[in-house]
Amino acid sequence: MILRTTLLCLSFLLPGVQVQAAINVFTCEPEWAALAKELGGELLDVYSATTALQDPHHIQARPSLIARARKADLLVCTGAELETGWLPLLLRKAGNAGIQPGQSGHFLAAEQVELLDVPERLDRSMGDIHASGNPHVHTDPRNILQIAGPLHQRLKQIDPDNAEHYTRRFEAFAGDWQRAIDRWYAQLAPVKGAAVVVHHDFWSYLIDWLGLNRVATLEPVPGVSPSSAHLARVKQSLDLQAVTMIIDTGYMNDRPANWLSDQTGIALVTLPATADFQNGESLYDWFDNLAALLLEPVK
């Protein structure tokens, strides 16, 4: 009781203790922040630990993230070991019982969909591989919809008083998003089946959705930068006429992809890794942008 009183007193004295009824949602990546915002609207105070320009593998459990995780009612992350370098540490430091693994406040998007690129063998000589599969599930819009279902259920569980609100918003989102998927798919018909070179296996789900043909990956193994010798070998192996584009990811070092594009004349398309949530970009805006960028080389 003394402790409670002390905490109460502290809360008056300290700046930054915000008085708000909103549900605090902490997301590891901006795509889940954007999705949560679609499903919860003004009832949620959504914070994303990373931006579209950051590599979510390589984040540090820095002070601001610990403070945000401490206050979260719901944590939404990708899982599949994408955040293995920092999320477990963050969870241990935050002292927040409700968002620990197994609790209703802990939601992992990758557990809601089937993963691609599951390695048959685990060995670090194969690079920074993920035992459970490729974690970049948000690059297929069908996965977004599949994740939205259980995520809205979770919101209802965390905030049962507003269950109807979440149901209403989810139903509206599901309809709109399905129509958007159909639109993007039709729009992208010209690149269907195209041969592409990727820098990192970031776009596997997008490639799967559009039926693209990945003919080469610039990284020799995941997470390891290509050497010039490796790049030269990739270049040699390519049938230059057949490759439509090189796909790079926004937050990655662009030199290898630039070099290959300069050397071969193959169009380089740098796709933003995710929605720029912090600047108000929605998932719709992001996929619109991806579609426009992917269509450029075939115009």
Binding site: F12, Q103, H106, G133
Partner: peptide, 28 residues
């Protein structure tokens, strides 16, 4: 203020195992 602090600090949720994978989930 009491509510804000109360929700976060005082009412530590009872530990309750949540079936995380749930319907249609993929446990990795």
């Amino acid at each position: 203020t009491f509510r804000a602090v109360g929700a976060a600090a005082l009412l530590a949720p009872a530990a309750q195992t949540f079936a995380d994978a749930g319907a249609g989930g993929y446990a990795h």
